[in-house]
Simulated assay, not measured.
Amino acid sequence: MPNLYDYRLFISHAWKYGQDYNRLINLLNNAKYFSYYNYSAPAEKPLFPAGTPMTNSQIRNLISNKIRPAQVTLVLSGMYGAYSDWMKYEVDESIRMGKPIIGIYPWGQTYAPTYITQNATVMVRWQTDSIVSAIRSLV
């Protein structure tokens, strides 16, 4: 059997709500016939060590460097996304770089922050097939 294509993903999320991020990673890891490389920065692999003094400009550069090699940006669209300046930056930077954005409705919900629904290339439900199909159609 030939090797699977590795989709290059950046997952925008809020560390404070890491359970949603972990649930998505688990979903993607268990998707059949799907392989990916994760360019996001999970809590266990932060962009910089805790306590390191960083300016907002330096943080923006680090985030941009994570988005740049990705083919698509996935945005976990919990209501916390409406209040996260860094998630907004990730959406804006993905748009600036021409990356398609997949907004993922929160588990069991039909609403997401307006900023995300207005800027996403496509919005999908929290289902493996919906997410994987959206990735494949946009890459």
Rank of each mutant, 00 (worst) to 15 (best):
T110K: 05
W86P: 08
Y21R: 02
P100K: 11
I101K: 00
I25R: 13
S77R: 02
D6F: 10
N22W: 13
V122G: 07
Y39W: 09
T117E: 04
V139K: 10
N65K: 07
S77H: 04
R68K: 15
L138M: 15
K16M: 10
V122F: 01
L138V: 13
P106D: 12
A43Q: 14
A70V: 04
G103C: 11
I11C: 03
N61F: 05
P2N: 12
L4Q: 05
S57A: 14
M79G: 05
E93L: 00
I67Q: 12
Q19V: 14
Y83P: 00
S64N: 08
Y33M: 04
I11L: 03
M1D: 11
V72R: 03
S137Q: 15
M1P: 11
T128K: 00
P53K: 08
S94C: 06
Q71L: 02
P100T: 07
P46S: 06
N38A: 06
Y5W: 08
I25W: 07
Y33P: 00
T73N: 13
S35K: 15
I102E: 09
N61T: 04
E90Y: 05
P49E: 09
P42Q: 05
P2M: 12
A14Q: 01
Y33A: 12
K16N: 09
T117Q: 01
M79V: 04
A82P: 01
W107E: 15
G103D: 12
L62C: 04
N3S: 10
W126V: 07
T128F: 00
S94D: 03
L47T: 03
N65T: 04
D6I: 03
W107R: 15
G78E: 02
T52H: 01
I25S: 05
S64G: 05
G18F: 00
P42I: 05
K32G: 00
K32R: 13
N30M: 03
P100N: 09
L138P: 12
E90I: 06
A134D: 10
D129F: 02
N65R: 13
G108C: 04
L24A: 07
R68Y: 11
A43L: 15
P49V: 07
I102T: 02
R68C: 00
V139M: 14
G81H: 02
A70G: 10
L28H: 02
I131P: 05
R8H: 13
P69E: 13
V139Y: 15
K88G: 14
K45Y: 11
K16G: 03
T73I: 13
Y21F: 02
I101P: 01
R68L: 14
Y33S: 15
M87I: 15
I131G: 06
S12T: 10
A112I: 15
S77C: 13
N61K: 04
N56V: 00
N56M: 09
V72Q: 02
A134G: 09
L76K: 08
Y36W: 10
D129W: 01
T73Q: 11
T114S: 11
T52K: 06
S40H: 01
S12N: 02
Q19N: 15
F48W: 07
Y83Q: 10
F48R: 07
Q58T: 08
Q127Y: 14
D129K: 12
Y17W: 09
M87P: 06
